[in-house]
Computed example of a mutant assay.
Amino acid sequence: MERLARLAQRDAGLPAVQRALGEELVTVLGVDQAHVIVLDAGHPAHGIVVMRDGGSNEYVLRPDDLPDALRWVADAGQAATVADASVDGALPQQLVKTYGLRSAAVLPLAAGDTVRAVVLLGSREPRVWDPAELHTASALSDLAGTAIALRDARLAAAIDPLTGCLNHGAMRERLSEEIARARRQNTPLAVTILDLDDFKRVNDTYGHPTGDVLLRHVAEALRAEYRSFDQVARYGGDEFVVILPNVRGPRADIAAARALRVLREIHITRPDGGQEGITVSCGVAEWVEPEGPAELLERADKALRGSKAAGKDGLVRAPTPTS
């Protein structure tokens, strides 16, 4: 419990809280495995499992509209036990097959008044779950919930007030987390930097209130266009960054091109009632080891400058750095 309390005090990142809670549950309860699965739009999505033998893994649950114990606990905010995990609809078959689950206990993990994750205590053998075990697991989950609530509060304070996107500092922290995840899982990662062409002219011609409205429209369009786990941030002024986990090669270019297409549909309403379109320049870079956030953003920014130099209203891909 002291370890989870320290995480809360230092406002740790979400993956660190998931892993620490899983390790504490396995150590304290002696269960075969402990999964901590965070929710995405109310559905269990991103999990970390810690095994009693010391192994651990991260995974993404495949989307499934079928109800199961994880979904029920997430919706109801109450614990549930699964006596036979092989029964259809009891648990996601992805977890049953991968981790040999025979029985399980599932508990909600709340941060404030909101269920943010579900905790799955798993066994490879049929077993009955002692109420004392569930009480201990619930107490540990409450501590993890406190750590997540503090992190949420910090992120809320790190939101850009004009656009509702992550601000510069929060973006760099999130990018650090995604690089660490890509490094652990050996998965791809890309970033896109977008800059509104001739934005200064918009402010000079139509005034800063019109420029602010334009920035809000751009932010809303980007958030609507990308996946729920992509992150849109205001990099500064009229520049935006999109963090794209699990994206590489042509998919990164396609994702950037989608943004350009959507933003070209935004129009400024002139004082005379007419409308004026906008264009955007874009730089795309894929993360390569051993880059950190600063190096990756610098390559994307250099590609953006290349797009500007090439005539604006387009995208340039950053070349892979040579060792």
Results as ranks from 00 to 15, higher is better:
T136I: 07
S56E: 07
P245A: 14
A221K: 10
V26P: 00
A158I: 11
L263H: 00
R3C: 08
L296S: 02
P161N: 05
L155N: 13
A117N: 14
S281A: 06
A170V: 06
A182F: 04
L296Y: 08
E276K: 07
A117C: 14
Y235M: 05
P188E: 00
T136H: 12
G47D: 00
D272G: 08
H43M: 08
G47I: 15
T146L: 10
R183H: 15
T163V: 10
L263N: 05
L260P: 03
T163D: 02
V38K: 06
R52F: 14
L29H: 02
A156F: 11
Q275M: 07
T114F: 08
T163Q: 04
W129L: 02
P209E: 02
P293F: 04
T187P: 11
D160K: 14
A303P: 15
K312R: 07
P67N: 00
G237E: 01
Q9D: 03
I266Y: 01
L95N: 07
T146I: 11
A233M: 04
N246H: 13
T322V: 09
V49S: 02
R10M: 08
I254F: 09
G249S: 15
A182V: 12
L120D: 05
Q9W: 02
V191I: 05
A170T: 01
L29A: 06
R270D: 03
S228A: 09
I48C: 09
I254K: 14
V218K: 05
L214Y: 05
P293D: 01
K200C: 10
T205R: 14
E173S: 08
P321Q: 04
R124C: 12
L120K: 13
A180L: 05
A157H: 08
E173F: 14
T27R: 12
T27M: 10
E133L: 09
E178Q: 10
A104Q: 00
L215Y: 07
H135W: 15
R172Y: 03
G112T: 02
A158S: 07
V202Y: 01
M51Q: 10
T187V: 09
A318P: 10
L120Q: 09
L194V: 11
A221T: 13
P15Y: 13
H46R: 12
L70P: 00
G47H: 02
D204L: 14
G22K: 07
L25A: 02
T163I: 11
G211Y: 07
G273D: 10
A147Y: 04
C282W: 09
T322F: 14
A318W: 13
T81D: 02
E265V: 13
F229L: 06
V316M: 08
D84T: 11
L194Q: 04
G207A: 10
V96Y: 15
A153N: 06
T81Q: 03
A90F: 04
A257I: 03
L263M: 09
V28A: 10
R10V: 05
T320F: 03
G47E: 01
G30K: 12
R261C: 07
E24L: 09
G311Q: 15
I268H: 01
H35C: 03
Y226R: 13
V247A: 04
N203T: 01
D198F: 11
E24R: 15
D198P: 06
D238K: 11
A144Y: 09
H35M: 07
A170M: 14
L194N: 01
V128I: 13
D160M: 15
V17P: 01
L196Q: 02
I48F: 12
L21F: 04
A80E: 15
Y99H: 13
T205S: 00
G89R: 12
